[in-house]
Amino acid sequence: MANTSSHTRRVRSPMFIDRRQLLGAGAALAAFGLPRLAHSQSGPIRIGQSAPLSGPVAGAFQGPLAGQKLALDTVNQRGGIGGRPVELVLLDDGYDTARMVENVKLLVERDKVVALTGLGSTAGVAAVLPYLAQTRMPLVGSWTGAHVLRLRPHPSFFTSQASFKDEVEHSLRTLATIHMDTVGVAYQDNAFGELMMPVVETAAKELGVNLVARAPLAVDGSNAADAAKALAAAKPKAVLMIAVGPSVAGFVRAARTSLNVPVYTLSVAASSVAPLGAEARGLAMTQIVPSPWRKVDAMAREFNELAEAAKVPVDYSSYGGYLGAQFLLEALRRAGPRITPDGIIQAIQGIRNWSLGGNILNFGPDRHHGSAWAEITIVDSNGRFRR
Rank of each mutant, 00 (worst) to 15 (best):
His179Met: 13
Tyr131Asn: 06
Pro153Ala: 15
Ala115Tyr: 01
Ser40Val: 05
Gly358Val: 13
Gly245Pro: 13
Gly24Val: 08
Ser381Gly: 13
Leu328Ile: 07
Ser371Gly: 11
Arg384Cys: 00
Ala243Glu: 05
Thr117Phe: 04
Ser40Leu: 12
His170Phe: 15
Pro138Leu: 04
Val252Lys: 01
His7Ser: 11
Arg10Ile: 12
Leu217Ser: 02
Glu305Arg: 15
Met196Ile: 12
Gly55Gln: 10
Ser54Gly: 06
Ala325Asn: 02
Asn260Gln: 14
Ala203Pro: 06
Phe157His: 10
Ser267Ala: 08
Gln41Tyr: 06
Ala310Thr: 05
Glu308His: 07
Gly82Phe: 05
Pro85Glu: 15
Trp143Leu: 15
Ala51Arg: 13
Ser271Gly: 05
Leu139Glu: 12
Val268Phe: 10
Ala331Glu: 00
Asn359Pro: 05
Met241Ala: 03
Ile47Asp: 15
Leu91Asp: 06
Gly250Ala: 06
Asp315Phe: 11
Ala28Phe: 11
His7Lys: 12
Ser13Asn: 14
Val89Asn: 06
Ala176Cys: 08
His39Arg: 14
Thr177Ile: 04
Gly282Leu: 15
Leu217Ala: 03
Gly221Phe: 02
Pro337Phe: 10
Ala213His: 02
His170Ala: 13
Leu151Tyr: 12
Gln68Ser: 15
Ala71Ser: 11
Leu70Tyr: 12
Ser317Thr: 14
Gly208Met: 02
Met241His: 02
Asp226Tyr: 09
Asn362Val: 14
Asn76Asp: 08
Pro275Lys: 05
Gly277Val: 07
Ile17Asn: 06
Ser42Pro: 00
Gly145Phe: 08
Ile339Val: 11
Ala127Phe: 07
Ile378Asn: 09
Pro292Trp: 06
Asn382Tyr: 11
Pro246Arg: 09
Thr177His: 10
Gln49Met: 11
Arg78Thr: 11
Ser13Lys: 10
Ala274Met: 10
Val108Ala: 11
Ser50Thr: 13
Ser40Met: 05
Ser171Phe: 01
Ala203Gly: 09
Ser222Gln: 02
Pro337Tyr: 08
Arg9Glu: 15
Ala191Met: 03
Ala38Ser: 03
